[in-house]
Design a binder for these strands. Structure first.
Lengths: 151, 151
DNA sequence: GGCTTGCTTGGAGTGCACTCCAACGCCATA
DNA sequence: TATGGCGTTGGAGTGCACTCCAAGCAAGCC
């Protein structure tokens, strides 16, 4: 019952409104992955996965009877999201803050939204900066292109 | 003679095809700035400016008769460009490499262009990633917005 | 002359985000 | 039963890009 994939479990939701587009290949119908499988799926290292857990960036990960980590699909969804946040340049401390809010439940919706909206603004600014830089690069590249050819 | 602003000096060109859009306010007709003026113009710290020089990221900066740095407009142009490169996420080591190529003269046009083109590709990828992230953020934000309101 | 301000230097320190290490446990296959 | 492979831990180490420090010099002002 707890392994049915489609529904977001509300028992311990890693996050609500989770991943529509699946980014990493996952064997269908499975919901327990070793750390090395997660490494293969996410591209993160095992070190980093354990470190994320230590600093509170992961919701508690299940363990096998021998104490080894067994990740679930919702953990992978969460890791996908964290990876996205990370490449916005968001500091890990802020991601941990968001993770805390998720753990605290529905009362924190407003704050989570505020956090994401501020991140959204950062991303838009970043894109604008990059466009700007792109213009500079294009100008220089075309200079070198013509000079390089005419020489 | 050496203080006329418009022409790119070919005596010691910080970079060819230099800055059309002036980013920072500069007193017109001046071409010698103290480090603290450059701090005000660029937003970099004095520490960082000296460090850039030490690692070879700056073309040689003039000195006053007492040994203090006197930056010129071409130095400011170069710093503008470096700042742009930096916010693409380019490692400082690569920027130093580019600076070396500039010092080596016209023979390195092809390599400079290759370097900038590879940076350009990185920037485009980065923008694509950020767009992707933006979509995820928007989805989550609108979820929290409706849930937050309906609650 | 004394004080302040602004600059100089080499080298050491900081903060972030990992990244690695040593020592150990469990278990499947030869 | 032993060997290899995969996993575990806390704590230490790494690389990057700054960031700061202490000690000192030069100029301007009271």
């Amino acid at each position: 019952m707890q392994t049915t994939p489609a529904a977001t479990e509300h028992a311990a939701p890693a996050d609500i409104c989770s991943a529509p587009p699946r980014r990493h290949p996952r064997p269908d119908g499975q919901d327990r992955y070793t750390i090395s499988e997660v490494v293969a799926f996410t591209g993160l290292t095992a070190h980093t996965l354990r470190w994320y857990e230590r600093i509170g960036l992961m919701p508690h990960v299940d363990r096998s009877h021998t104490g080894q980590r067994r990740y679930r699909n919702r953990d992978l969804d969460w890791l996908d999201f964290v990876t996205k946040l990370r490449l916005t340049g968001m500091p890990v401390a802020d991601m941990v803050r968001y993770a805390e809010l998720v753990r605290e439940g529905e009362d924190t919706y407003a704050e989570r939204r505020a956090l994401l909206e501020s991140t959204r603004r950062d991303v838009l600014n970043r894109i604008a900066e990059l466009r700007d830089t792109l213009a500079v690069l294009d100008r220089k590249i075309s200079f070198y292109a013509t000079e390089g050819t005419t020489r």
